[in-house]
Design a protein around this nucleic acid. Structure first.
Lengths: 226, 226
DNA sequence: GTCTATATGACGATAGAC
DNA sequence: GTCTATCGTCATATAGAC
């Protein structure tokens, strides 16, 4: 173990991580072309210019690769939604209820948009399309994290008055996921080639969010006219 | 062409239909065990006690079999929902709004229940899990029929006062399908082994229907207290 | 209509040389 | 780490005997 043993290890490690990342990206690319269940290791290797067995230096099995895709998908989605959804952290009352509602819609929209625009990931993350594969606990972790942070965000929305004080946050968040999963699922199943902005189902998302907020929100107030 | 040519033809025809039906049923059974995309013709033949090539006397390809499953699924679902959802056809005003709401909930429930309790069909009908397969126009017909009848039912619900007079029925029905597809999809993806009655997501369906009716229904009226 | 036999090819995965 | 070679399995589909 010379003086540069550690740096060498790091460099090798970094290179390895890059290769792993490339395998996952190519896999996602191919899943987009042939469907999540249509992935083949031969195709992955071919597109990378290597041989199939070389992949086994990085993944123990095909399902391990699916696991990496699943995990990376949730990480990307989490990043994407977090970036687009930053609640103004200033004094609570400076943010009007309408503004909060817009933040909620923005969060729902960025989530659904990511799903529709990344159908390969979405199939694996929101459905169960691959026989014999189900995500490991480790791969699930980022998904759980998204959920946890979602409930926390709901808590804040409640404290700031967008949701009624007496709502069950866990239940409300679950219903929230049903709405978004429903939109993504219907769009991808029935009209996968439509863009998010023009989608038959995605265009209804603002209404669904309004529906949700009317139900879980506080005031009886003035009636929407449409 | 003897006098019994027609009966003989009929008998043969009937026998053939029975075999086709059996193939489809076995296929659904296996899809339930290995996932929709995990279906293999060898397994189908084995379970029927015949050889794989014999299947080609009834279906031109594996995708043709998927098509038959898809079509039969929508037919069964349509029958199931129709049986459970018979709007009282008497004088309109004899049926209270609460009763109409219960009918709507019953329809949603029977639909979602069928999906959750027939996951093999549901995967194929609501998702796109099989690489290279997409339903033919013929297979889609019963699905379109369900949709058409759904919109008609919504029309009646509007005429009877459960929905506001100015709602866009097509849009409302689409949102309705999003809610139900969302429930089925979330339940099957995240907790496929839970029963419909105890399902984490299915249990929220009544709330979703209430949410929907509050949004698309008429009266501002008294506020729900939960 | 159902069978045997077979064509043809892909797949995931492993062994062992370099 | 990547390769060649290969194992064993399974797939869809066809040809032709019975």
């Amino acid at each position: 173990m010379g003086i540069d043993a550690a740096p060498t290890t790091d460099r090798r490690h970094r290179r390895r991580e890059e290769t792993i990342r490339e395998i996952v990206d190519v896999a996602v690319e191919l899943m987009g072309e042939h469907g999540a269940a249509g992935l083949s290791l031969g195709d992955v290797a071919r597109r990378m210019g290597i041989r199939t067995p070389s992949l086994y230096g990085y993944f123990d099995s095909k399902n391990a690769l699916y696991d990496a895709v699943f995990e990376q998908g949730w990480r990307q989605l989490a990043d994407d939604v977090t970036v687009r959804w930053a609640l103004p952290a200033d004094e609570s009352r400076r943010v009007s209820r309408d503004e909060l509602a817009e933040f909620a819609l923005a969060a729902a929209t960025s989530f659904a948009r990511w799903g529709v625009e990344h159908p390969a990931y979405a199939q694996l993350m929101f459905w169960r399309p691959v026989p014999g594969y189900e995500p490991s606990a480790a791969a699930y972790a980022p998904a759980v994290d998204v959920s946890t942070r979602g409930v926390k965000a709901f808590e804040e929305l409640r404290d700031r008055g967008l949701l009624r004080a007496d709502v069950d946050l866990g239940e409300a968040f679950r219903q929230w996921t049903v709405l978004i999963a429903g939109v993504v699922s219907q769009q991808l199943s029935n009209a996968p080639h439509e863009s998010f902005d023009d989608g038959t189902f995605t265009r209804g998302l603002p209404q669904l969010v309004a529906m949700f907020l009317q139900f879980y929100g506080p005031a009886p107030r003035a009636r929407r006219t449409r």
